[in-house]
Simulated scan of single mutants.
Amino acid sequence: MQTNGIRPATRPAPPRTGRGRRRLSARARRAVLFLHIVAGVGWFGIAAVTFVLTVAALTSSDAAIVRAGYEFHELLIGSLARPASLITLGTGLILCAGTKWGIAKHYWPLVKLVLVVVTISITASLTPGWIATALRPSGTPFTGDHLDAQVNLIGMAVFHVLTIGAATWLSIYKPGGRTRWNQWRTGNASPA
């Protein structure tokens, strides 16, 4: 509808990034950031709980408590940690692609991506075997393979706490500046 030759105001299109890509709107960015933070905090909390759980299972002399601890650990990983880690990864990629930071423009998002992918990959490949070994019945649960699996599960929980903590630190402080690839692409440096 026009009045006196004046056109009604329209919303401007979201700003485009480098290669014709659109950035997330402020509302979408906040929604994705909210999901990213909740999933990351959840993943960190699950890692802390699994640390306490695996230490308690290692130090318990009651075989029923040890078994229940590792069964609960397996439940936590399958039903909470795996979805939280994948949501963290997916929302992180969306935020990188849809904001000024990009995936490979700055070092900190690239390092975060590597940390998350490595953590998910290592966990998915090693943890199921360790849990199965810790759950396997044995007359002496504190020797050999059982002890190794229990100690490895504690180490994995510590690894998660450290990598998720490092990723959080990177998000807050954003160290490292622009990548060489981005400097070369934008004309601020010569290719190496």
Rank of each mutant, 00 (worst) to 15 (best):
I103S: 04
I46H: 04
A63L: 10
G20T: 01
R180N: 05
V117Y: 14
H106Q: 14
W181S: 05
D62Y: 03
L89W: 13
V41R: 05
I46K: 04
Y107A: 02
T54F: 12
A81C: 09
G102L: 03
Y70S: 12
L95N: 05
V111S: 04
A167M: 02
W169I: 15
V161I: 02
V117L: 15
R16G: 09
R11Q: 09
V52F: 15
A13V: 01
L33G: 15
L35C: 11
A167P: 14
A28M: 05
A134H: 00
Y70I: 00
G42K: 06
T186G: 00
V158Q: 02
T99K: 04
S190F: 01
T54M: 05
S85C: 06
G98K: 04
G98Y: 04
G98E: 02
I172W: 05
L80I: 13
A48Y: 09
A68P: 15
W130G: 04
T123N: 10
P83C: 06
G20C: 00
W108T: 03
T143H: 07
S25D: 08
A157K: 06
V66D: 02
V38Q: 03
T54L: 10
E71P: 08
L170F: 08
V158K: 07
P141W: 00
L147V: 06
G45F: 05
R21M: 13
G69A: 11
G92F: 13
T163A: 11
K112P: 02
P12N: 12
I172L: 08
R23P: 15
H160I: 11
L53C: 13
L24R: 07
T179I: 00
A56P: 06
Q183W: 00
A48K: 00
R21A: 11
A28C: 11
L126N: 14
G42I: 04
G45L: 09
V55L: 07
L126R: 14
V41S: 07
R82H: 12
P128C: 00
L135P: 13
A57R: 06
S171E: 08
A97H: 07
A192G: 07
A31Q: 10
A39N: 03
V49I: 14
A48T: 08
V117I: 12
G177E: 02
F44G: 10
A192L: 15
T163Y: 05
A64T: 15
Q150I: 14
I172G: 08
H73Q: 15
L115V: 05
S138L: 01
V116K: 10
P128Q: 04
G45Y: 09
A134G: 09
A97Y: 10
G69M: 08
T17H: 10
A57E: 01
P191N: 03
R16C: 08
A63F: 06
L80T: 08
G42C: 05
G102T: 03
I103P: 00
T3W: 06
A64Q: 12
R22V: 01
R23A: 09
G155T: 13
W130E: 10
G92N: 09
G176W: 00
F51K: 12
L80M: 07
Y107N: 02
P175N: 04
E71M: 13
A56R: 06
R178I: 01
A104M: 08
A192F: 14
I103N: 01
V41P: 10
S79A: 13
R21C: 06
T133L: 00
P15S: 05
I172P: 15
G90S: 10
V161T: 01
L76G: 10
A57W: 03
K105A: 07
A64L: 07
